[in-house]
């Protein structure tokens, strides 16, 4: 009888310890006020602002460091103007193209393909269709920059992911890809 109570107690105990272990909840902390400071941390929920989020938009009219103004509008005319007039401030160099390639493979190749022929993995898996090859499109550095800035048709703007310098580096690399395709 004693043995029986002992075993049942053991089982209850192990069940209790198991049930306390919950993957969807964070673990205990030792002195939590050293882990969580008084200052706001990134993306924190906070009552300090009206919408309850720590991550606020910058004040209207503020300009980020290193920001370059862009004068062309997001219209068909703006596209044509950018295509014909906009020139890259960067010099054509190995270093820029190499950086452009790195960025292209992160942000563009998933649709446009590593070679720029429109055969990216999303196209092959038919998530996106009709992605053009750079071969078929009459594009210039200016038009590539413009499209990266605003997006075009189904392509969204990538201005939030790459800054103006990086956009120019990608444009350089895309032009070099197109030259390879035309050859």
């Amino acid at each position: 009888m004693k043995k029986l109570t002992f075993y049942s107690l053991m089982i209850v105990f192990s069940l209790m310890t198991l049930s306390c272990f919950d993957n969807s909840k964070p673990n205990y902390q030792f002195f939590p006020n050293m882990y969580e400071s008084v200052g706001y941390s990134t993306y924190e929920q906070s009552d300090a602002f009206a919408n309850g989020i720590e991550a606020q938009l910058p004040a209207e009219g503020s300009i980020p460091r290193g920001w370059v103004p862009y004068e062309y509008e997001d219209t068909n005319e703006g596209y044509e103007l950018a295509k014909n007039n906009l020139m890259s401030p960067l010099k054509l160099s190995e270093k820029n193209i190499k950086k452009g390639k790195e960025l292209y493979n992160i942000y563009c190749a998933v649709c446009h393909g590593p070679k720029g022929d429109g055969q990216g993995i999303l196209m092959k898996r038919e998530k996106f269709l009709g992605i053009p090859s750079y071969y078929d499109r009459d594009i210039t550095e200016g038009s590539i920059y413009h499209v990266l800035m605003y997006g075009k048709n189904l392509m969204g703007s990538h201005a939030g992911q790459v800054n103006s310098n990086e956009r120019w580096q990608i444009s350089q690399y895309v032009i070099s890809l197109r030259e390879k395709l035309i050859k």
Partner: peptide, 12 residues
């Protein structure tokens, strides 16, 4: 030793 360690933490 596992206090404060969140290895395997998988919230919904």
């Amino acid at each position: 030793m596992q206090i404060g360690v969140d290895q395997g933490y998988m919230p919904v």
